[in-house]
Simulated scan of single mutants.
Amino acid sequence: MNFFSLMTQGGVVSQLVAMLLLGMSVASWVVILWKGWLLPRAVGEVARSTAVFWQSASIDEARQKVAAFDRQALVLPLIAATGIRAGQTLASAGDRSQQLTRVLRDALHAVLNKLQFGQVLLATVGSTAPFVGLLGTVWGIYHALVGMSAAGQFTIDKVSGPVGEALIMTAAGLAVAIPAVLAYNVFGRAIGRIEADLEGFARDLRELFSHQPQNG
């Protein structure tokens, strides 16, 4: 018996556990493939975008060059946040340095939320999939014991099927969890690197524009 036969031939609990593990695996691999494409690209894009910005003669030129380089560049929301305007609301209270701190922080959080998307799913799958597989294992052992009790004696044909289900569920739980855990750790390091670069760029922007007059 293999994993997929459990979904059609196993008991109700075994089928539910198998379907749950399959769903967790599909969801985690979708995230893994998407972030595996996004994050390496983002690491290089942040470095190139910041280099383009500092080589520009003005903020408008920098914005145009970065947008021409990549319309989805992660630094664009930070650059756009420097164009705050004077107003009469609490959001515009305080000096320009305080306002820049606020708007750059909000822009940075929005960018990081995009990068962090899927991390919770990977962490959840990595931490719960082994226990879901363990549930299938326990249920398989229970079936084996029930089969032995009904037969009144130990026979291989009564326990081989349930024990096979138990072993497959254990392996399936680990097979789902291990890629999720590895991806979570690898992506977490990449996100941390990007976050550090963006925070440094935001601090530089704040220092650069804090003493300039607000746009009226």
Rank of each mutant, 00 (worst) to 15 (best):
Q72C: 07
G126D: 03
R63N: 06
G36C: 11
Q88E: 11
I79P: 01
L115S: 05
S97Y: 05
N113F: 09
L104D: 02
T124R: 07
K114L: 00
S58M: 11
L78N: 09
A73M: 02
V75W: 13
R48P: 07
W54L: 08
T124A: 10
V46T: 07
S49C: 13
S97D: 06
A67N: 03
A68G: 05
T101S: 12
G36L: 08
L108N: 02
Q55V: 00
L115P: 11
S58L: 15
Q88S: 09
L33D: 01
T50P: 06
L115G: 03
T82N: 03
A86I: 07
Q88A: 14
E61T: 08
G44C: 14
L76N: 11
V125P: 01
A110C: 08
V43L: 02
D106T: 05
W37R: 11
H109S: 03
V125E: 09
L100W: 06
A67M: 03
N113L: 00
Q72M: 12
L78H: 11
L121M: 10
V31Q: 08
L78F: 10
T82H: 04
L38N: 11
L90V: 14
T82V: 14
T101Q: 10
V31E: 01
F117A: 01
I79L: 07
A93P: 02
A107N: 03
A81F: 02
W54D: 09
R102N: 09
V52E: 00
R41A: 04
D60T: 15
S56T: 12
P40L: 07
L112W: 05
S58P: 15
A110T: 10
V125F: 08
Q119W: 04
F117R: 08
A68P: 09
V120Q: 10
R105I: 02
T101R: 02
G44F: 15
D106Y: 05
F53L: 15
A93F: 04
A110D: 12
V120E: 09
D70S: 15
G126F: 05
L90W: 11
G118F: 12
V125K: 07
I79K: 03
A81M: 11
R48S: 10
A93R: 08
R105P: 01
T89I: 06
S49L: 14
S97K: 13
S49I: 15
A62D: 03
G118L: 14
Q99L: 03
R71G: 14
R85M: 05
A67Y: 04
G44A: 12
Q99H: 02
A107P: 01
R96A: 07
G118I: 15
A123G: 04
A47T: 10
D70T: 15
R48D: 12
V46M: 04
R63S: 06
N113H: 06
E61L: 10
V66T: 07
R71M: 10
